[in-house]
């Protein structure tokens, strides 16, 4: 490909930057808005830059609402969920590569085909099940429907397949059992993709909305994404504390995003193509 030269490059660069700024404006506005006073929010013309850096909104968000508790709930369910999810996917991918058992191909398809059943269309029945099991307002309830990640299982199977079979043979000769082989050899060799999957699962569970909205009733068990929509400030156009809360919730993921940009990009692209 010929490198673009001269004015055309400059035009393209300017256009790309303008688009980039438009795309990121809502994020900027969210962060800026968390420093606005009530008056700045309702001013005309609208305020774009906060007059001072005041932490008032953050204090209100934390003191007047169970925001910290919401974040804790999300943190617990997202991390436990992400770990269980990768463990379950890894175990089945491992079996599908290194084990022989009856109906292996069929079972593989059975698990993979859950991709075609959209979770949102199954939510009524799953809700009834969770409530009958008495798992409303529990972390297990929040995590439950996220435990299976067929795409991750599929991708891990592809990666395990690429590990030379001689490793397996050498390991068995040395008396290394399945579990040790999985933990000592297979897992370290697929560490980077597993890290991406962990991050991805964490974000998926952290960001989920409809399911945790249904399976939590108690304020103290709400996850952060549900919790912030229940803060009643916005009804009074008092967006400040809500924006502060959202910024607190989003900033960690933006930072993670900037640090792991390359890896997340690879993971996102390969994950969605799986």
């Amino acid at each position: 490909m010929k490198r673009l030269t001269g004015t055309r490059t400059i035009v393209v660069m300017i256009l790309a930057t303008i688009f980039g700024l438009v795309v990121t404006f809502p994020i900027y506005y969210m962060v800026a808005g968390s420093f606005f006073s009530i008056r700045e929010f309702s001013s005309f013309p609208p305020t774009i830059v906060p007059s001072t850096i005041r932490l008032h909104n953050f204090q209100r968000a934390i003191n007047e609402s169970p925001l910290i508790r919401f974040m804790l709930n999300s943190l617990i369910s997202a991390s436990v969920g992400a770990i269980l999810r990768i463990a379950i996917a890894t175990l089945s991918a491992f079996a599908f590569v290194y084990k022989e058992f009856k109906a292996k191909k069929l079972l593989f398809i059975v698990i993979l085909a859950t991709m075609l059943l959209p979770a949102d269309a199954l939510i009524l029945e799953n809700y009834i099940l969770i409530s009958r099991l008495g798992l409303i307002d529990t972390y297990l309830g929040i995590i439950s429907i996220h435990l299976l990640a067929p795409v991750q299982m599929f991708m891990l199977r592809q990666i395990f397949k690429s590990i030379p079979i001689t490793y397996r043979e050498a390991a068995s000769i040395d008396g290394c059992g399945d579990v040790r082989f999985l933990i000592r050899i297979v897992t370290p060799m697929s560490r980077s993709i597993m890290l991406i999957f962990l991050l991805q699962s964490f974000v998926t569970i952290w960001n989920s909305y409809l399911w945790p909205l249904l399976v939590t009733n108690d304020t103290t068990m709400r996850t952060v994404q549900v919790g912030i929509t229940l803060l009643s400030y916005a009804e009074n156009l008092d967006f400040g504390p809500v924006f502060a809360a959202i910024s607190l919730v989003v900033l960690p993921s933006i930072l993670l995003f900037l640090v792991f940009r390359k890896r997340i990009v690879e993971g996102v692209v390969s994950g969605s193509l799986g």
Binding site: T17, F19, G20, L21, V23, T24, P26, I27, M30, W206, N207, Y209, Q225, V226, I228, T229, V249, V250, S253, I254, L256, F257, R261, I264, V265, V268
Partner: peptide
Amino acid sequence: LFIMPLSVAMS
């Protein structure tokens, strides 16, 4: 910049 929105949750 273009992929930044990926880090923000729906709600």
